[in-house]
Design a protein around this nucleic acid. Structure first.
Lengths: 354, 354
DNA sequence: TATACTCATGAAAGCGCTTTCAGAAAACGT
DNA sequence: ACGTTTTCTGAAAGCGCTTTCATGAGTATA
């Protein structure tokens, strides 16, 4: 490790290329035409000096950070992998940097978030309840670009929101259980308290029942928390309570796993005795046994779309108030659709096709 | 959305508190004692004005960015979730921001990375081959704080590296197969070409064989690519080739899934006919059936440790040249250890068959 | 009471860049 | 040939903050 050298500045480049710093800045940004020959000299000087513009100085002078902020409650949940990938890809494509901040717990103090807003980023993507309403309202009021994911903006704020078709996805899923598999007593596992995705899925569930003239039975609703363990216990309890069921709509895939475990432990066969379906189509959904029937949410697409809408806002263009990403039914074994045999054949086919 | 207002500056605060901007800066940073009463006035003024220091200005003036850069080839792989969580938590604790950059493909051009180094971050965490050697060497040479993850520094550069005990973990795993389950013909699925984790695991594998006087058979080594599909095909091929085996060390958990699928399709029982073990203990490892015996790598810890070592460097303190995070054997069903659930699994199989 | 310190404070000089602004040079029109 | 545009270029003014540096007030020492 050698001594820390002072990185070259725009002045060094200007000097070496025998032009003014203004000219260097211009070839750097392409803001104003520069004589071809001079431009070439500048470019060569930059290269020779390993010149890299100092972002902070740039930001300070130009008043734009070229950075998108992402706020979420907790990074690293399975769900976030594709989301991040989508956001990252879209940001990169637009040549924006990505600054990620987690609040640790929902509704956290705004102090650390504050620092993200305004000067540090050109706009913010806010996930679920990671930012409290007051702060959200304040930022929005001062015209700061904001986009919400999986969360309706509070009150009358016209902040764009990106989410997936929770309701229609759930509805299709439940209708499939009813129509194709003749299920009538379908358990619904709710997500975490107040979770919007869950609320919409529940509406879809209820509408599906209604459409088919099946009465809504509160006894079939319990909490799954979008969580393996919680779902496990809830279903176990239901079984102990001898509540009749012929299917479980688990709210999400995590919960579906817990539900399946509970059923299995109780000696109930899936899907023969009880069909189980999830939501999200997380990567391992197809590796469970039985493989999980679920709804595929284009999570990666949600991330990309969020960035795109945010960029509109940043550029002063109008953005979609609501972006609903379409979902797709993924039929596998756990609802009784594909027999084990069939799925193996599929695998064979796909493997020979390669 | 109202008109974009100019955010308050330190001058506004100074004016309102009737002090100089220098004083405001001092209470902001606590660099020099300030009269209690004035300090209080300043704090109140900051609050009333919703003052948030402009990071770029701060960075420019103070020459430190308070940001840690993370470079990886592709975000959003399952593996990264815990890694990110660890890094994020450690960075947050140290009150550093996190700037994430992906190269898209390995060995990408350094242009975009360049921009991360030097002025934009105080230090960089580099994952695997995300940054080419030349650039790595250059940054290191100018004294820029750098930490590597799961990758030995090239040549003679003394860049700290954080990784996990791949070798001893693999060794323990294979020894378990040999000693407890009496396996003798153990397949090893290699990771992607040139992957260091894989190389160390292979060494652990070989040492375990050696220790127990089992001859190393090249026919038992094939590529798994740390990938479900690739492992599936490799094992399928082996089975077609009628290569005898009584166990598979799959390289990682993803590959283990593929291996299990291939075995199952061929009618081989896991673990009765062939034991299968993975590496990493990804979240779904315990949800596979059979549940997967594997090695738990403290990936989250790796992330945290990387940040910690980087901070040492940033603060001019010495850092560990090599940090090896300990791993832990996780015994589950797929090696034949926990068998009580095997019967349930059989039931399940028969249920889906009928 | 004079002398030497300590301590809090403000003025001012940058940090490295972008962006007016105005002038010089070249191109055009008549 | 002369005025008018059009182009390019450099000087210089910040962007909002940190950080010397010098100063004046307050306190301790003699």
């Amino acid at each position: 490790m050698t001594v820390k050298t002072r990185p070259p500045t725009i002045a060094d480049v200007a000097h070496r290329a025998a032009v003014s710093i203004a000219t260097v800045s211009r070839v750097l940004n392409g803001t104003t035409p520069v004589q071809a020959e001079k431009a070439e000299r500048v470019r060569r000087a930059m290269e020779e000096l390993h010149f890299v513009p100092h972002t902070a100085a740039r930001t300070l002078a130009s008043r734009r950070t070229n950075t998108i902020g992402l706020i979420l409650d907790e990074i690293g949940r399975d769900f976030f992998s594709p989301l991040l990938r989508g956001i990252e890809a879209a940001a990169r494509e637009a040549r924006y940097d990505l600054l990620i901040k987690t609040t640790g717990s929902p509704h956290a103090s705004l102090a650390s978030i504050d620092a993200l807003g305004q000067h540090n980023t050109d706009g913010l993507i806010v996930f679920i309840d990671s930012l409290n309403e007051k702060e959200l309202a304040r930022l929005h009021k001062i015209g700061f670009p904001l986009v919400l994911m999986h969360q309706t903006p509070p009150e009358e704020l016209d902040i764009p929101i990106i989410t997936i078709e929770n309701k229609s996805g759930a509805q299709k899923l439940v209708e499939h259980l009813i129509e194709v598999h003749g299920c009538r007593r379908i358990v619904f596992l709710q997500g975490p308290e107040g979770n919007e995705d869950s609320e919409w899925r529940e509406r879809g569930y209820r509408e599906a029942l209604e459409t088919h003239g099946i009465e809504y039975d509160p006894a079939l609703i319990t909490s799954g928390g979008f969580d393996d363990e919680q779902a496990f216990h809830s279903i176990q309890q239901m079984l102990l309570d001898r509540i009749e069921m012929d299917a479980i709509f688990a709210g999400d895939d995590e919960a579906a796993m817990g539900a399946i475990r509970a059923l299995r432990m109780a000696g109930r066969l899936v899907p023969a005795d009880v069909a189980v379906v999830g939501f999200d189509d997380v990567p391992f959904a197809r590796h469970l046994s039985p493989t999980l029937t679920t709804v595929r949410a284009p999570i990666e697409g949600v991330g990309g779309e969020a960035v795109r809408q945010l960029l509109h806002l940043i550029n002063g263009e109008p953005a979609e108030a609501l972006t609903l990403m379409p979902v797709k039914l993924i039929l596998r074994e756990s609802c009784g659709c594909e027999s084990k045999q069939a799925s193996i054949q599929d695998e064979l086919l796909s493997s020979t096709r390669r």
